[in-house]
Design a binder for these strands. Structure first.
Lengths: 182, 182
DNA sequence: GCTAAAACGGAGACAGTCTCCGTATTGTGG
DNA sequence: CCACAATACGGAGACTGTCTCCGTTTTAGC
């Protein structure tokens, strides 16, 4: 990659991080280009779609989410607390930029999406937590990690979409009660 | 309301129902106007926002959803089956037009939305089911009907957003297990 | 029929997406 | 160190969708 290309790539990414945080992941891409001091053509060459841009920004998250999952397992807490903590961390991360949660929901089951691979990393992180507890006999029989991921992403999406500041805790408690063994 | 106004109003609504079913609730409004044989101005005079149009189409649903809730209660089935049946019916209705579910999620906690009143009707329907079972002692203590509604709408939204045909049943089972008494 | 009120519709302003291609920048072999 | 491919830039502009304004048409009551 040429030096100027790398420079612009980084500049666009840094600007996108700011704008997406300020105004959500549906902000105008041309405006991001303008604020980054590049032409729209340059932005679209580096990131052909909005999803590709969101995907590039997600890199940090997937690392942190993955680490969070392992940290949750390491606590050795009972299933209820472990899951609640893990889910809350997960939701905190994916709702960092408004609109991201629902994009992740959509990408999760769409291998054609540029974000699919990142979603898999997060799904795998979740699977580790679920498998760990399942092996321990702490979960109801027949719990499918993929469905748990979808459910929790759904909660994130609802919280993110809602115009009021919504507390996700009560919803997560229902989900957790539906997962853990009686 | 003048005769021509009524005529156009109905024509727009009928067309929107077709187009929203074919291509989802994010279809071009100008195209709906064109296919209805009216000018864009006419469409926007009757329905100032896309939400207002979706709202008008939802009228049927709210009635049916309300009836479904009462029908579910009337079955007298145990909580698990009653809730599963009710939730599935509810989701079937609100995912009739692609994109509607997430709009409903957003409107549910936004009194400023034109759809807010319709959402309330559906929330009330859900509350009847929940209250009925709760009075019967079949639910865990502290279950909040509003959160149940958000959770189930979230499941609907996930299913609707997903690019694959997603079976909502397993997710609903988790939710139901989280609601009903051990 | 006449008239005022109500409603129509489409031209066009505006905003966002995305592309094409002439111009500029880079780095490499001589 | 410089010439020249290869690579990347950027902005004009095509395109699509939203939404408004206002001259024209339709309606309903007298």
């Amino acid at each position: 990659m040429r030096a100027d290309a790398r420079r612009n790539y980084d500049k666009i990414l840094a600007t996108a991080r700011i704008v997406f945080t300020e105004r959500g992941t549906d902000s105008s891409l041309d405006e991001i280009a303008k604020r980054a001091g590049v032409g729209p053509g340059t932005l679209y060459r580096h990131f052909p779609t909005r999803e590709a841009l969101v995907d590039a920004l997600m890199q940090d998250w997937t690392d942190r989410v993955s680490a969070d999952a392992d940290a949750a397992i390491a606590t050795g807490l009972p299933a209820r607390q472990m899951l609640l903590g893990w889910f809350e961390h997960f939701i905190d991360h994916i709702t960092l930029h408004r609109g991201a949660a629902s994009k992740i929901c959509a990408a999760m089951d769409d291998p054609a999406s540029p974000m699919y691979r990142k979603c898999r990393v997060m799904s795998d992180a979740n699977r580790r937590v679920i498998d760990h507890l399942d092996a321990d006999g702490q979960l109801r029989p027949g719990i499918d990690a993929a469905n748990v991921m979808r459910l929790v992403s759904g909660v994130a999406s609802v919280a993110d979409t809602s115009h009021t500041e919504l507390d996700v805790r009560p919803m997560l408690e229902v989900v957790v009660d539906g997962i853990v063994h009686d």
